[in-house]
Design a protein around this nucleic acid. Structure first.
Lengths: 220, 220
DNA sequence: ATAAAAATTTAGACTAGTCTAAATTTTTAG
DNA sequence: CTAAAAATTTAGACTAGTCTAAATTTTTAT
C-alpha cells in the first residue's frame, strides 16, 4: 500500500495536471501541498522509484497509468465521503472538504463499495465534481465557466472550481446554489463582472473572480 | 491535538486498566500495540511529559483525568463508527474492528456529534460494548461472564470480551447472537465447558475459553 | 548570446516513532 | 537474604517526511 503522504502527492499531481497542459512543476506542488520545493523533490524521486510518476530532473512530472489509478481511487473516496457528509449527516457543502481529506485515506475496498451503494451510486459530489467510477474512469462533463457565457444566455449552475469555505459561503450568500438556473443580464467590459438574474427574478452581482470559478451547463 | 500514535497508546492503556487493578505494565502495552518494550518506554515518557499519564519509572502507568478524557473520546468514536458500519453499511460484526480502528482518529468534533445523532444516539456498539457519552462518561453495565452462570439459569447474551474476527465468526457459527436468550443446561466439572440451550430448543457446546468471553445479563 | 533571475535539486539536519543491544531495576525462587 | 530471572529503561541507530542553505540547471531579458 501507499502512505498517506504518497496518496496526497498523487492526488495533487492529478489535480494540477487536470488544469493545465504538460508536466506539473515542483514549485506548483510545493505550493499546493504547503511544503517546500526541496521536500517535493525528495518525494518525487521516491514516487518515480515506485513507478507512480514519470519524472526527469528539472522537467516536472506526469502520472504513470498506475499513479493515475491510485489518484482516481483517492478522489473517488474523497467525493463519496463528501456526499455522505452532506446528504446523510447534514453538513453544509462549505464544511466537508477538510473532513473528507482525512476520510479519503481509510484503507478498505469493501468500505468504498458499500458506501457507494449506500449513497445510491452518486455521479457527482456536493460541489458538482464528477465521482470517478470504481473501474477508475473520470466521467467527463462538458461544462463551461460562467465567465465565458454571453449576455442574455440562460444556464444552469453545475459545479465550482474553488472549494474553499469562504468561496462557498459567498455563493450561499448570493443564493447561488448548485443546479439553479441563472441568466446573464449584463456584462461589464471594464472588470468583466456580471449581473445575473436568478429564477426568483432577483439579480446579483458576480465578480469575474467568482464567475471564473463557476461551472455551468445548458439550462434544464 | 494528539498524534494518531498517542491516541492509540491512551486507548490501549484505558483498555488494559479496565481489565485489571493497579498500574498497566510496559510489557502488556508492548504486546497489545505490537511494538517492543523499548518503544513503549519512550512513548510513556512523552505521554507523562504531556500530563496524559501518571508514570514512575519501572512502576507502570495509569491515565490522568485528561488522559482518560482523550481515551474515552477515541473509544466513543470507535464504537459509533462500528454502529455505522454494521447498521448503515451492512457489514458483519466480525468485519468492522479494523476499519473503525482507522475511522476513530478522524479529527472533527462536529463529525462525531452529527454521526451520533444520525445513528439515533446508540447506547451500545454491535458487540454490546457501551458507548461513552459525549460528556466523557463510560456507562456501567452489570453484566457477568457466561462462565460464571449456574446450571439451570436463563440469561441473555449482552456482549463479548474478545473482538477478533475468528471469535465472532465462531459465535455466528454457534447461532449465538447478541440479545439471544440461553439457558445453561449442563456444566462439565473437568474442563468447565458448558452445554447451553438456545431459544430454538437446540443445544450447543460452549468451551470455557468461549464462555469466559461472553457477557450475559438477566434474561428478558 | 549571455548574465541575471527563477526553478530545482542536493546536502545535511531535525522530529516522531520504531528497533536492537546493553544496562539497570525489580521480582522471585531457593 | 541473595542470586538469578524477568521487566524495564537507556543508548544508539534507522525510516519517512520535513526543513534550510547551498549548488545546479533552466529560463528570461537584454
Amino acid at each position: 500500500m501507499h502512505s498517506f503522504t504518497e496518496e496526497n502527492y498523487l492526488k495533487t499531481i492529478y489535480y494540477l495536471a487536470s488544469r493545465q497542459t504538460g508536466e506539473v512543476s515542483t514549485n506548483a506542488l510545493a505550493e499546493m501541498t504547503a511544503t517546500k520545493a526541496a521536500s517535493v523533490s525528495d518525494m518525487l524521486r521516491k514516487l518515480a522509484d515506485k513507478q507512480l510518476i514519470h519524472y526527469k530532473k528539472y522537467q516536472g512530472v506526469r502520472l504513470t497509468e498506475e499513479g493515475e489509478r491510485v489518484a482516481l481511487q483517492i478522489i473517488r473516496r474523497h467525493r463519496l465521503w463528501e456526499v455522505f457528509l452532506v446528504e446523510k449527516l447534514g453538513f453544509g457543502w462549505d464544511a466537508v472538504h477538510d473532513i473528507a481529506e482525512e476520510l479519503e485515506h481509510i484503507r478498505s475496498e469493501e468500505l468504498v463499495t458499500r458506501l457507494d451503494t449506500y449513497l445510491g451510486c452518486p455521479q457527482f459530489d456536493p460541489h458538482g465534481d464528477p465521482i470517478p467510477t470504481s473501474a477508475g474512469q473520470m466521467p467527463q462533463t462538458g461544462y463551461q465557466k460562467l465567465s465565458e457565457i454571453n449576455t442574455g444566455q440562460r444556464v444552469q449552475l453545475m459545479g465550482v472550481l474553488e472549494h474553499s469555505t469562504e468561496f462557498l459561503q459567498h455563493l450561499d450568500h448570493l443564493d447561488l446554489t448548485l443546479s439553479c438556473s441563472v441568466t446573464v443580464a449584463e456584462s461589464n467590459a471594464f472588470d468583466k463582472s456580471l449581473l445575473v438574474q436568478l429564477e426568483s427574478g432577483r439579480t446579483v452581482f458576480v465578480s469575474h473572480e467568482v464567475a471564473k470559478n463557476l461551472l455551468v451547463g445548458e439550462s434544464q
